[in-house]
Design a protein around this nucleic acid. Sequence first.
DNA 1: ATTATCTATAGATCTATAGATAATGC
DNA 2: ATTATCTATAGATCTATAGATAATGC
Lengths: 227, 227
Amino acid sequence: MTQTLEIRPDNPHRKAGRPRANGVKASTATRHDILNAAAALFVARGFAGTSTQAIAAAAGLRQPTLFHYFKTKDAILDALFMLALAEPLAIFKRIEALPGAAPARLYAAIHADTLSLSNTANNVKAVFLLPELGHPRFAQARAARERLIETFARLIAEGIASGDFRPGDPARLARLVMSLDEAPVALAAGEAPAQARMVADFALSALLIAPERLGAIRDEALALMSE
Amino acid sequence: MTQTLEIRPDNPHRKAGRPRANGVKASTATRHDILNAAAALFVARGFAGTSTQAIAAAAGLRQPTLFHYFKTKDAILDALFMLALAEPLAIFKRIEALPGAAPARLYAAIHADTLSLSNTANNVKAVFLLPELGHPRFAQARAARERLIETFARLIAEGIASGDFRPGDPARLARLVMSLDEAPVALAAGEAPAQARMVADFALSALLIAPERLGAIRDEALALMSE
DNA sequence: ATTATCTATAGATCTATAGATAATGC
DNA sequence: ATTATCTATAGATCTATAGATAATGC
């Protein structure tokens, strides 16, 4: 598992096209470069606080060139939302179909979500903290993220029903878990796995009636995922 | 305790001044109204995505009137940050001086922080999720918030040393706790105490080696605070 | 005389479009 | 012929200032 969110070069064989004004050889994955630059800037300055000029400059382009790759500025943010959601959505779907007990599957989901988001270049996960996510024009991305939270909620409800988790409102607990996943963290290279484990351990310890089972549940979860 | 963050009317006896263009009688707490309007808009649309025109309209004023109360748009956000930080900073200072054991004091801190933020009109707490908090011009607010996180970290370190909490990196755990406190939640009226309890219970359950002590710790914490 | 507001507007953006241009590909 | 880029710019903002105005206070 742990497919990275690496975006494939839009056109790996590209040679045509006017040279860039800055003289730098064009990347073969300009779209990817734009998304990376935009993610870093949106997270640092906000969406409205980042001009298309700033994104273009960070990607080594003139401002109007962005509109060759994205119809509007909104479309850039939408692509980032969808990019950060694609992998967790696929993994969660798989996890929900697995046979294991609720605690191990919840551990696996939290672990995979934190890891996938941390994996992505330039902490794409932090885009979910942007207020724009709440705007109607990004309803699709918001709905996809709600599906992730609902998966957490279902697994939590299952664990409460089975007597593994302490009683509580699964929907609210699921939101707390998601806010742990999306906690803004500056990760050095290679720290993502440790962060994923810390977050999943923290969440499961909070939910379990018998937290001394954490180690066994972690092992079961990681075994589930490596199948 | 639980002093609310209610802002005092800047000038409760005001009668002078040109009438408003919208005909509505001027509030006696215009500054307060502006902050409330701005908080709701910043959280919904982001800081740069909210025009001073929009804030003024929501407060029943013409756009330039804002600048009678705040020198710049930045100053509005800065006032919001400081407003949301004032109460937790005061409470944390008190808690650190209290004699109780680390778990109860940590419980008290988390509970008070979640409650204080939820108390404030218009979910001011969500302003801490705005990317602008990271900008140098808001360094003072960011530093104040870091002091809150350091209080969590000190209490967590103390609890680990005393054998109450499971081992871990106090600084990272403190950030996880803060992200629970600031989890974006739409609270109906009167739900804030339940949310504060849920967050504090969740955090302490995750940290304690013996989570069956949670009930006793909660009682101790609430007793501490009502002294 | 003081206060809180207003109207008008300068100057600085910022998004997106139109259309030219300099490469490669055939 | 197609592609990726460029330059130039229209039109729509948006912040903040200047200075007038309509109340109350003395």
